[in-house]
Write a protein that binds this DNA or RNA. Structure first.
Lengths: 103, 103
DNA sequence: CATGAATATTCGAATATCATAATGTAGCCT
DNA sequence: AGGCTACATTATGATATTCGAATATTCATG
């Protein structure tokens, strides 16, 4: 049942904080503390969302001393985010065109 | 807040039935009845999932007589599904390699 | 080995999602 | 108008997610 995988896959992407984490990791590896600061989110929340991303192999974790560095496991994940943005923008302009046609 | 959009966007993809609907529509326009049959799902469920896909502009609906034909609004949506599959397969083979290394 | 720093996990209540069942609506056809 | 077909919507109980608080773990250092 590959469909279930795909659904779980996308469901994991279906949270603003997790999207923000992945976007932040475009710049390279970051620690949990870095992510907390950038996202201005609770420690627990960041850690829980990272756990979700880890369990689906969206990110890799690398321990150095007491801190853990996270990175995106597969660069194709950013392709997904970019295609999503493209679709969004096409929707926007199509809606705008429809709106203007009604004027 | 574009992140929220992206999250909602992916959340909409985060259900097996909705993935199956989008995959079924690769062959072209289908009516709700067609989809019911192909997915062997309840009428209400199909209709509700279509409503979810409609609300996010994943699909277009076109009424002809008493039936409604659905189609995918933006072909880039299949790109998303395909990239997701690619990532999945890479994960699989990476896990397999790791497993074999442990033998 | 006691302490502190960084991160993870567990717990609980609030909220969201889902499936099923029931009801509503819109367009034929006679 | 009345009935039928094809969909859509609403209601409701069950399950899943999410957040913040509390607690636990892991590692370095004195």
């Amino acid at each position: 049942m590959l469909r279930h995988f795909k659904a779980e896959f996308f469901k994991t992407l279906g949270h603003p904080t997790r999207i923000r984490i992945l976007d932040a990791l475009r710049d390279g590896e970051l620690t949990v503390g870095d992510l907390q600061q950038r996202l201005k989110a609770e420690q627990s929340a960041v850690s829980q969302h990272l756990a979700a991303l880890r369990s689906r192999d969206f990110v890799h974790a690398r321990r150095v001393g007491t801190s853990v560095w996270y990175s995106v496991a597969d660069a194709a994940i950013w392709e997904l985010l970019d295609i999503a943005r493209d679709i969004y923008e096409r929707q926007l302009s199509s809606n705008r065109a429809m709106f203007e046609a009604l004027q």
